[in-house]
Amino acid sequence: MNQKTNPVKPSEQGSLNDSPAETKMSTTVLPERQFSLRGKVYVVTGGGRGLGLVMAESMTEAGGEVHCLDRLREPDPEFLATQDLANREHVGSLHYHHLDVRDSEYLQETISKIAKRNNRLDGLVAAAGVLQHTDAIDYTAEDVTKTMDINYTGLFMTAQAVAKQMMEYDCGGSIVLVASMSGLIANKGMNAPVYNSSKAAVIQLGRNLAMEWGKKGIRVNSLCPGHILTPMVEQTFKEIDGLRHTWESENMLGRLATPEEFTGATIFLLSEASRFMTGSSLVIDGGHTAW
C-alpha cells in the first residue's frame, strides 16, 4: 500500500499516561496514488469489445498492464484500434488472448503465463457473459447449461485461477465480478430468467470469495450495472419491439448508460482508493432499483 505518514507534532503526542489508542497519528494516501494502477498486471475477461474493452482501456490509462481474454478467435477491429491508442499514449499496455472461459484447463494455463511475465498478478475484471431472452416455459436444459457455464462457472473458474496466481506471487489486490442489477430484479419487458439468475449467483459468489480470500489480501466486489448500450443490448432491442423505450422510462435519469460511465467505478474498485471495500455490490443503474 502506498502511504505517506505525516510526522506527529510534539503537542499531538500526548502524555506518558496516554494509551496507544489515545495517541493520534494521521496517515494519508496521495490522491494520484490512490487511483493509480501503475506497474500492476490485470486480466479482463470479455475484453475483446463492448463494456469489457472500455474498462480495459481505462485501466491502461491508469497505468496497468491489461490482458484481455475473449472467445473471438481474432481481435475485433475495435480492440485493435484501442490497443494501438493504449500502447502509444497510455502509461499501461493492452494485450489480447483468445480463450473461452469454459475451457478451465487452458484458462489456468493462460493466466499462469500472464502472471509469470512479471512475477505478479494484481487482479481481475470478470466481464464475460451471454444473454438469452426466452420464456421460462420454453427453456431447455441445454440452454440453461450454456448460460450458466459462461456467466457463472466460467467466471468462478477465472476468479479462482487469478486468485491462485495472486497467492503464488504474494500479490494482494482486487477482483471485480461484473454482475448486474438484473441479479437483484426482474427486467420489465425482457424474459431472461437464467441470465438474471446467473447474475444473482455472481453477487452471492462475490461475498463468499471475499470471505475466504480477505486474509490473503485479496478483495472481491461485484459491480452491478443498469442497462447499458452495448452490442449485446443493441441486438436485444432489434429482437424485442419497444424494449428500449421501456428500459429508458424505468430509471430516474430516463436514459440508458454508456460503457464509459463505468470506468470510474472500475478504477475505484481495483485501486487503493477502495482498499477497505470487499464483499460489497456496487449498483450503478441510474436509480432503476431505487424507485
Rank of each mutant, 00 (worst) to 15 (best):
80 L>H: 02
181 M>H: 11
81 A>G: 09
43 V>L: 11
122 D>S: 10
54 V>I: 05
182 S>D: 15
237 F>T: 01
211 M>E: 04
179 A>T: 03
64 G>S: 10
198 S>Y: 05
33 R>I: 02
17 N>K: 14
277 M>K: 03
79 F>W: 06
271 S>D: 03
28 T>Q: 07
196 N>F: 07
63 G>Q: 09
205 L>D: 05
161 A>K: 07
218 I>F: 06
215 K>Q: 12
44 V>S: 04
107 L>R: 02
107 L>D: 00
74 E>Q: 11
170 D>T: 08
63 G>N: 05
252 M>Y: 03
88 R>V: 06
55 M>I: 15
167 M>K: 15
260 E>S: 15
273 A>V: 04
94 L>E: 00
178 V>C: 14
31 P>G: 02
212 E>D: 11
183 G>I: 01
130 V>H: 06
77 P>R: 06
118 N>Y: 14
121 L>H: 00
187 N>K: 12
274 S>P: 04
77 P>H: 08
100 D>W: 10
288 H>V: 05
197 S>W: 04
90 H>Q: 06
282 L>S: 07
5 T>N: 10
257 A>R: 03
243 L>N: 11
53 L>E: 01
165 Q>T: 07
106 Y>K: 14
255 R>Y: 10
109 E>D: 14
233 V>D: 02
203 I>W: 10
142 E>Q: 13
199 K>H: 05
8 V>K: 11
16 L>W: 13
195 Y>V: 09
4 K>I: 11
239 E>S: 13
